[in-house]
């Protein structure tokens, strides 16, 4: 018995595989989703998605977004998603520093929001990467 995990961003479809279990972070805390989970809609907080596939465990860093669970499918809509092994630590670190530096200066509210999002993406990527380094 498997459940299909689909992760899409506006730019691309990042992930689409049958997995045994999905663990994700909602705004209300972490939740594990097994096949035959009841239909559910929730908000996704920036953080980590862990997918169990047989003996493999797949880690992904995601931004905030929405999750829709139907009987056999977990659909994740988010603005950013990267597999842990694909995270470029140096680039993320650089992005974090840039965003922080820019935020320290005077910026418009709109740019600040943009920078906050970039900062959130970078820190999430770094956190997941460091947590899952083998």
């Amino acid at each position: 018995m498997t459940i299909r995990l689909e992760i899409v961003t506006p730019e691309a479809k990042i992930f689409s595989e049958d997995v045994d279990m999905v663990t994700l972070t909602g705004t209300e805390g972490e939740m594990g989703i097994l096949p035959q989970h009841m239909p559910l809609m929730t908000q996704l907080a920036a953080g980590e998605i862990v997918a169990q596939k047989g003996k493999d465990t797949i880690f992904l860093a995601v931004g905030d977004g929405f999750v829709q669970v139907t009987g056999g499918r977990v659909a994740v809509l988010t603005d950013m998603a990267v597999r842990a092994e694909n995270i470029d630590e140096a680039a993320a670190e650089q992005a974090r520093k840039n965003a922080e530096a820019r935020l320290a200066e005077k910026v418009s509210a709109e740019e600040a929001a943009h920078l906050q999002a970039a900062l959130l993406h970078a820190t999430t990527q770094l956190r997941v990467r460091r947590l899952r380094k083998r």
């Binding site: 705004t27 239909p39 809609m41 908000q43 929405f66």
Partner: peptide, 20 residues
């Protein structure tokens, strides 16, 4: 038949979904 559960609640999820 498939009634969705909203978490935390409909208002929060739809409230975030609309602007998005």
């Amino acid at each position: 038949t498939d009634v969705f559960e909203f978490e935390p609640d409909e208002k929060t999820v739809l409230g975030a979904l609309l602007p998005h």
